[in-house]
Amino acid sequence: MTRWGMAIDLDRCTGCEACVVACAAENNIQTVGEEQAREGRAMHWLRIERYYEGEFPNVRTRFMPVLCQQCGAAPCEPVCPVYATYRNPEGLNAMVYSRCIGTRFCANNCPYTVRVFNWFDAEFPAPLDSQLNPDVSVRPGGVMEKCTFCVQRIQAGKDEAAQEERDVADGDIRTACQQSCPTKAIAFGDLEDPDSEVSKWAESPRAFSLLGDLDTRPGVVYLSGSEWREPAE
């Protein structure tokens, strides 16, 4: 069985936000504009959190890409009244847009605040419509969305492997954020496979889970060698 997972090495992350851009392009994420962003309605599936260490002038900035943690015990799932979000057999916290009725309970219950809501229908005026990814649906207004671990790439990778009559190999499937990362700070793969890159990273003594004490059993593992691990309350 597969358990898709991701490991992010924070010691490599420079906070360049290439992943944020790649994610938006790959997943047809709508741009809401300044006014809506000010209302807290920006729709990124992946954001870079900034934390500061030390006292001025000896300050260091730490960056942390935060995306859906694809929790093993996801707080968002049991609150959905229409079963639009559920745990799929491969460990993805699935989001079925065509089922979602927009109660926003899931976003309310997500401790990572990584779910975003389509307050309006997405607009991609020409020629922007030409750059939409045909493998990803454009979500209509009134629907919740979030990081899918680039499920379209997972499906394509499995399809490619099946066409070539072989198993999916580690490294075949790369998420958009991983692909765009200039410092190769992101590993993606099967956490059940002990030889996969992501499993090896996850075994590092530097590994930790975001808000680990909540026991959400995230599919995303962070690595940091600094004394800083998570922002203190």
Binding site: Y86, N88, P89, E90, L92, A94, V96, Y97, S98, R99, D135, V136, S137, T148, V151, Q152, Q155
Partner: peptide, 8 residues
């Protein structure tokens, strides 16, 4: 028969 097999 996983939803994500087709819907995404």
């Amino acid at each position: 028969d996983d939803c994500l097999a087709c819907h995404r």
